[in-house]
């Protein structure tokens, strides 16, 4: 008897849940990048605290690509309203969105994130250039004598550039699934290789091969994939003074007593140099909102207003304290205006 009742209760719960899942959701659902997660969650919390009549939004950390997959799944309460991204939305993703009926997307550039190369404070600072970094990390590099592509055999930084110390090359970085890795490849590897005439020639002959040569990171143990957890990389740097680590600027800022950011092309990573664009390895961060959900899910407009307000995104806003590099003043005003007007992206 008891078991019958139990089974009935379970069945009833599932049925009501199904009905519930299809009818209403009274909180904003956000998915996407783990890099943007620390910032969006801060805004979500403030929004929930300041607005007693709205629930606090739910923020899932799914990665940029995974986020767009969910976001572009369609229009309706079972699909998320907002997606975080550590890169701009791809053309293919816009097409997927459109195919599923998600045509009106509001793009908000919330600020910048610097990608730093850091090492333990016990190590002397190394003035790196993007060219050095490419030579250290590419799988194939042009032979200095002949200019032909050979397997990368550089073992120490001195081999690459006589001005650098004779330390073993050892770089801890994120795995290919990470948005930070994508940005590193795009900002460092792609630019570094363009400084070699051999690659330029190759580009004219075989564009695809040139791109692959630029972007392929060596697999002989010099570049170590250290997983998605940046705190782990920081700890490994402290334990191994020779190693360099690649991660977001906020982790450098929190651990300035243990690690230092290396200068790249003569510019040290700092709040100011990333904000004014002097530091070469920085990327824009985005938040995408579904216009069709505004008015259906309560609070989306107000949430966007909170996100783009000066007290969040501004020079001294709470996001800056969390490590987000704010946009320049004029650009920020423009972004806030467009976002609050729910200006949709050109299809």
């Amino acid at each position: 008897m008891i078991k019958h009742k139990l089974a009935l209760a379970v069945a009833a719960t599932i049925l009501t849940a199904t009905a519930y899942g299809q009818s209403a959701r009274d909180y904003i659902s956000i998915v996407g990048s783990s890099t943007v997660y620390p910032f969006t969650t801060a805004v979500a919390e403030q929004f929930g605290k300041a607005n007693a009549n709205f629930k606090t939004p739910k923020v899932e950390s799914t990665g940029t690509g995974g986020g767009f997959k969910l976001f572009c799944g369609g229009v309706g309460v079972q699909h998320p309203d907002i997606s975080n991204a550590s890169r701009a939305i791809k053309k293919s993703e816009i097409e997927t969105c459109a195919k599923n009926g998600v045509t009106e997307i509001v793009e908000i550039n919330i600020g910048f994130d610097g990608i730093v190369l850091a090492s333990s404070k016990k190590n002397k600072p190394m003035p790196l250039t993007i060219k050095d970094l490419w030579l250290a990390l590419a799988k194939e590099v042009p032979d200095p004598a002949t200019g032909k592509l050979v397997m990368n055999n550089f073992k120490t930084w001195k081999d690459i550039n006589a001005a650098l110390p004779a330390n073993k090359i050892e770089v801890l970085g994120p795995p290919p699934t990470s948005g930070t890795r994508d940005a590193f490849v795009e900002l460092v590897m792609d630019h570094g290789c363009k400084e070699f005439p051999a690659i330029k020639d190759l580009e004219k002959a075989d564009e695809k091969k040139a791109k692959a040569t630029c972007q392929t990171i060596r697999e002989d143990g010099v570049f170590i994939e250290a997983g998605e957890n940046d705190n782990l990389i920081v700890n490994k740097l402290v334990a191994n003074p020779n190693a360099l680590g690649i991660f977001g600027y906020s982790f450098l800022e929190e651990n300035l007593d243990k690690i230092q950011g290396e200068t790249i092309n003569g510019v040290a990573p700092s709040f100011e140099t990333i904000a004014d664009g002097k530091y070469p390895v920085s990327r824009p961060l985005f938040v995408y909102a579904k216009k069709a959900h505004v008015g259906v899910i309560p609070g989306i407009k107000e949430f966007i207003a909170e996100f783009t307000s000066e007290k969040a995104m501004g020079d001294e806003g709470y996001l800056a304290r969390k490590g987000l590099i704010p946009l320049p003043n004029a650009k920020r005003k423009q972004v806030a205006m467009d976002a609050n007007a729910l200006k949709v992206m050109a299809p």
Partner: peptide
């Protein structure tokens, strides 16, 4: 299934995030 998420409000039933 979406349970790796930032959730401030304490869940009150089986359907709250």
């Amino acid at each position: 299934i979406g349970m790796v998420a930032f959730i401030v409000d304490v869940p009150k039933n089986f359907l709250d995030p």
